[in-house]
Design a protein around this nucleic acid. Sequence first.
DNA 1: ACTTGACTTCGAGTGCGCTCGAAGGGGGAG
DNA 2: CTCCCCCTTCGAGCGCACTCGAAGTCAAGT
Lengths: 127, 127
Amino acid sequence: MTETLIAEDSYDIADVASRTGLTAHTLRYYERAGLVHAPSRDAAGRRRYTEADIGWLTFLTKLRSTGMPIRLVREYVELCWAGDGNEPDRLVLLQAHREAVLQRLDEAKRDLEHIDYKINLYRKASS
Amino acid sequence: MTETLIAEDSYDIADVASRTGLTAHTLRYYERAGLVHAPSRDAAGRRRYTEADIGWLTFLTKLRSTGMPIRLVREYVELCWAGDGNEPDRLVLLQAHREAVLQRLDEAKRDLEHIDYKINLYRKASS
DNA sequence: ACTTGACTTCGAGTGCGCTCGAAGGGGGAG
DNA sequence: CTCCCCCTTCGAGCGCACTCGAAGTCAAGT
């Protein structure tokens, strides 16, 4: 009788890796880097992630994929961990990021137009 | 009578740096990396860039700022240097980049929506 | 003649974000 | 009991794109 007593909505590192698209190595790295709460452990010392952990990881990957540096992600999570009362600071941080992203998107669009122009030259030349 | 015999539309590395937004260090690095033609030199061995060099640098910065890795930029310039006949290859390379950029822009936009959602939560909370 | 300052080469160093490998420890299947 | 696989920690290594510093050269200004 081997009863594996594991909380129902808890996931091991491999599950989380496949659900977030991150590698197990990267998940441990994020933990070391202070980007995620250390998850709880099972009897054997293995990480058990909750649904909430996955939710946070999902949001964090969006911050990362929009170019927020690790350092700023950490600042943000530290504000979150610090408890209630600093929501305005979090808002400022996220809004600054938002503006930075919009600027980069805009510049990328303008630069892409020049590249498109060149592409069209090649297309016309090979007509 | 010191006549400085320098071709009229030629620029030294500092001019080019300020006109392209790159540093002199970076310009030399790009040259080493095979991203630009080695410019001609004056009598004292200093680089003299032409208007055409600046044009290419301008385009190259657009490739870079849209995320094209150095390696691919080099592939592209090598095609250009190889002379006529490979325009279809250059077109393929630029189009592939274009698609990659569009995908990244799209993903960034979608991710930004989630961030905006969170921003709005904070805004509502502090109302 | 001397100073200043921008240029030259070469190679090493930096910062970021992973990425990997070694060494060891369970734990379930057969 | 053995096998195998996935987990653990720790620390080193990597790829990219610069970025910088040392040491030397040269030309022009005072």
